[in-house]
């Protein structure tokens, strides 16, 4: 392996920050797809969108748009964390 150095406290903090970010994003990820698109659809049925309800829109389009935002947010946030913790590539 190119890099087998020992892990420092800062590396551990970096990993913890990464895991925190992942958990937050996964919660949103689940809410916009499994939540609004499937489980919570009956609760959203009062909100009309173009001939159907909001849950249908989330299941067929809204979740996908949300996924895009989440991925780019993660990439931006992690590249920032990489620099903050000094673990970026040269």
């Amino acid at each position: 392996m190119a890099d087998q150095n020992t892990t420092s406290a800062s590396d551990k903090a970096y990993w913890a920050a990464n895991v925190r970010t992942i958990v937050i994003i996964l919660v949103i990820w689940a809410v916009i797809s499994f939540g609004f698109g499937i489980l919570l659809r009956p609760a959203l049925s009062g909100i009309q969108v173009g001939g159907t309800d909001l849950g249908f829109w989330f299941a067929q389009q809204g979740s996908i748009i949300g996924f895009l935002i989440l991925i780019f947010f993660y990439a931006w946030r992690m590249n920032k964390l990489d620099r903050e913790y000094g673990v970026e590539e040269e």
Partner: peptide
């Protein structure tokens, strides 16, 4: 221990080279 070190190392981007 060396596997634990391997896991710790893939978790940080620093030192990623080309493929070996």
């Amino acid at each position: 221990a060396e596997i634990k070190a391997l896991v710790e190392s893939v978790r940080v981007p620093r030192g990623a080279g080309g493929a070996v």
